[in-house]
């Protein structure tokens, strides 16, 4: 089956004199390479420049809090079930008296871990979540030397309570609603 019209049938034909002396072919090759000397460079000088990341990029997860700073997650486990890579584990706990300002509902996740080495960043956890608690963000997961450091607990997943530590997922949430 022919997919493109760029394929060329190989024929073992006798070369013409111009082809046999190589020099014209070499000259045309040199012309091609010298043109590249003046082309725009494809390099991104990384630490100084960064490539633009789409705002709906699927990277490092965040566990959202509501407007009053309470965690949305109720440890229902739907995300763990939805996860095709089985990267998510959690332990549920009951909210005690006096913890109402920390957790929105009576049940919450005492431990919530995502193994970032297993995660395939598909975003199914986000779709499964009934409480709009988990979202994927445009932050990259940094590299590390030790495998255990890639198991992200709540310390790395839950966003901060202060206004400047909140992580904006409005675009991602909007993209969801349109689906």
């Amino acid at each position: 089956m022919q997919l493109t019209n760029r394929s060329k049938v190989v024929v073992n034909k006798e070369m013409t004199f111009a082809e046999k002396i190589y020099l014209p072919a070499i000259l045309s090759g040199l012309l091609i390479t010298i043109k590249h000397l003046f082309r725009k460079k494809a390099t991104v000088k990384y630490p100084e420049q960064t490539r633009p990341v789409a705002p709906v990029y699927r990277g490092w997860h965040v566990l959202k809090r509501d407007e009053q700073g309470r965690e949305n997650c109720t440890a229902c486990g739907l995300c763990a079930v939805a996860c095709p890579a089985e990267a998510i584990t959690m332990t549920a706990a009951e909210r005690k008296k006096g913890e109402e300002h920390l957790y929105r509902e009576e049940k919450y996740a005492a431990v919530y871990e995502i193994n970032m080495l297993r995660c395939i960043y598909c975003g199914l956890c986000e779709e499964a979540c009934p409480k709009e608690a988990i979202f994927l963000t445009d932050r990259m997961v940094p590299s590390d030397m030790v495998r255990t450091n890639f198991i992200f607990g709540k310390d790395k997943l839950v966003e901060g309570t202060e206004a400047d530590k909140r992580i904006d997922v409005s675009l991602r949430a909007k993209a969801h609603r349109h689906q």
Binding site: T33, I34, H36, L37, K41, A42, T43, K45
Partner: peptide
């Protein structure tokens, strides 16, 4: 440097 330029790269900088 020349290798880089001919390949649309920047080279050692």
């Amino acid at each position: 440097k020349i290798a880089a330029f001919l390949q649309d790269r920047v080279g050692p900088d």
